[in-house]
């Protein structure tokens, strides 16, 4: 693997995306809403609304005993805020990289085919694996950068707004570190690879985006549901889940490379 060629493709794709307002705007707005506005509203309303806290505590009582143990020792208001910020909003951190990366990766091959720029690259000595890896990284790196930045902003927002309730910095928890540094990257890589595969098979960006939405969305929803559940579990299980995703990543990348045929790509470039 020639990494110079891989990163040349990655840099080129990121530069192109950075010059497109249509893609940049949702990449800024979505994280801002998910990690700034929604958590702020949730914390402030729980701090000042007793009814909200009471109804949330009723819901918490129905949760598994392991979770109840983790919340033991907190006051009612603390329990409600902790539950929302640590468990429920965790799924947002899967939505962010997946949304961001889908915007870029749908554009990867399909956008190049649409703009008739891909054929030039196919004549160079770049291998299929290098080209695909470059394309996947072009979505993965910005997605991770935005996720980690969002994680930092979220930590500041949560701790700042909840400080009067907890009188200490309680976020991020250990499981959150594992979520952000292990599970989010492996899940995102899988989704990106899948969208890149779709992008290579279709004719244009809109088609790639529609199919990606139809195929990726159910996977995202299932994964998000599972992640909310996984956050209740031990760090070991989260690590293991991430490992399973890592294996799936490697298998999918291998499949994409095997099923990648330059001559079939050319059929669409007419």
């Amino acid at each position: 693997m020639n990494w110079q060629r891989v990163f040349t493709i990655t840099r080129k794709d990121i530069k192109e995306v950075a010059s497109t307002g249509q893609i940049i705007a949702p990449m800024v707005i979505i994280p801002l809403v998910l990690i700034g506005i929604i958590p702020a509203i949730a914390i402030v309303s729980l701090r000042f609304s007793e009814t909200g806290t009471i109804s949330l505590l009723k819901a918490i009582e129905k949760l598994p005993p392991t979770l109840m143990q983790q919340l033991a020792g907190y006051t009612g208001n603390q329990k409600a805020i902790y539950f929302i910020t640590v468990y429920i909003l965790a799924s947002f951190f899967l939505i962010i990289p997946i949304m961001v990366s889908t915007l870029i990766s749908a554009n990867s091959f399909a956008g190049e085919k649409e703009r008739k720029t891909l054929e030039g690259i196919l004549y160079t000595p770049i291998t299929d694996l290098e080209l695909i890896t470059g394309k996947v990284l072009a979505s993965f790196i910005p997605a991770m950068a935005i996720s980690l930045l969002s994680f930092f902003v979220y930590s500041v927002v949560v701790n700042a707004l909840a400080y009067p309730v907890f009188m200490t910095i309680y976020f991020p928890t250990f499981n959150w570190w594992i979520l952000m540094l292990w599970l989010v990257p492996t899940v995102s890589f899988l989704v990106i690879s899948l969208v890149v595969l779709i992008s290579a098979k279709v004719r244009g960006y809109q088609e790639a985006n529609s199919i990606a939405g139809a195929i990726v969305l159910p996977i995202v929803l299932v994964t998000i549901g599972q992640v909310t559940g996984v956050m209740y579990l031990s760090a070991k299980i989260i690590l293991l889940t991430g490992l399973l995703f890592l294996v799936a990543d490697a298998l999918l990348l291998r499949f994409i490379t095997k099923s990648f045929h330059r001559d079939r790509l050319i059929v669409y470039i007419r």
């Binding site: 080129k12 008739k116 030039g120 160079t124 000595p125 770049i126």
Partner: peptide
């Protein structure tokens, strides 16, 4: 050179640099 387009949103020098580096 075939009937392919350049990267329109990138500069002329960037277009050449990308290909130079893809050629090693």
């Amino acid at each position: 050179l075939t009937d392919t387009n350049l990267y329109e949103r990138l500069s002329a020098i960037d277009n050449l640099l990308i290909f130079g580096m893809l050629y090693g």
